[in-house]
Write a protein that binds this DNA or RNA. Structure first.
Lengths: 191, 191
DNA sequence: CAAGTTATTGACTGTATAGTCAATAAAGCG
DNA sequence: CGCTTTATTGACTATACAGTCAATAACTTG
């Protein structure tokens, strides 16, 4: 019927996400994308339309990936406090910490000037906070986590602390410094 | 001896800083700078050399300004806890909250790929943390602040929480949300 | 007033890069 | 096999922008 595509769309999307993650939206050129994916500009246009559309798909992909990790972590059979510790470890163990978080990077690059980008970012943070809140709630029920603040307040507190470390990652803080800050921030919510 | 300059260098530096703060380094063009300052490109080159040199001076200016505010706040005659509250208010009351913090924005825009930019950012955060630590120490001495953690840990904890809100500012969080997160984060360190 | 010095101006150059176009290649189906 | 459809390719266009150049303007001092 027609000439078949010579590459895997999902692979290209994933690799494009990596490039955007490393370099940001504006600083990523089609040359960068072609070098990394092996796919020429026009072929990218065929599937993803323009650069912004590809970027938006990359954001969605990133969010899904991130939330999946959180959900798996939350679903594990362990104490809520251990879940938080496990989350802390996973934040520290991401290869290439210096990249920060694609959503955070994008939030700062775009500000609020692109509605769809903003929506994607808010969605991810909202979903992340919901999962955090689940953990907090069960922790509070078992009296393992302070009830000085509501579960929502604590979830948003934890999310904010994580966002802070994302900046530190990008500004050259050592893994040790980040580890220390996360340790203190997470310990604070114990009773 | 020579033709006198027709504008005030400090004013132009300050206005340039504002432009960089609003738009970021890369997205700021000489056209933007000229529109805001009223000074043409070549004149800017005369004084500041190139765009990056002007940007670096803007960073220094920003840091000095920010640290001065913190120092004044710290020097006031009030309880350490009130100082922290006052700091919290000043974070919320900056006009144009959506701009975030120039240093944070730059940290994410540059990553660690420009040594001088990185140094400037680290310097500001280090100075800010030192001032926070002073406040924490006196708070701990008066038993107004927890001693579960060292003053250094708490200072870096507070700084991290502030960084987190800087991102939220840029990603469209409401002032109320930010206020709530700061309230929780600052309350955590009370005994 | 003339010489020297620096500021200002606008025009110019070179480059990077997003997006487009038209020609060609590769498949399946009748 | 040849027709249709879609993928791929490379060349092309338009634009935005940093940085440069050379001519002119404004001031001071001798």
């Amino acid at each position: 019927m027609s000439r078949p595509r010579e590459f895997d769309v999902d692979r290209v999307l994933h690799q494009s996400m990596e490039v955007f993650w490393n370099k940001g939206f504006k600083s990523t050129s089609y040359e960068d994308l072609t070098r990394t994916t092996g796919v020429k500009k026009q072929s990218l246009y065929c599937i993803f339309n323009d650069k912004r559309a590809l970027f938006l798909k990359a954001l969605v992909h990133y969010r899904e990936q991130y939330i999946e990790i959180l959900e798996k972590l939350e679903a594990q059979e362990m104490s809520p406090v251990d879940k938080l510790e496990s989350l802390r470890d996973s934040l520290l163990n991401e290869e290439a910490t210096y990249r920060g978080c694609l959503m955070v990077n994008s939030a700062l690059e775009f500000g609020t000037e692109d509605d769809q980008v903003t929506r994607e970012i808010e969605l991810m943070f909202a979903e992340a906070e919901q999962i955090l809140e689940k953990i907090v709630i069960s922790g509070q029920e078992q009296q393992l986590i302070t009830t000085r603040f509501s579960s929502r307040e604590l979830a948003s507190y934890l999310n904010n602390a994580i966002l802070g470390t994302r900046i530190q990652e990008k500004s050259g803080a050592s893994r040790e410094q980040i580890k220390a800050v996360l340790r203190v921030s997470f310990s604070m919510i114990l009773p």
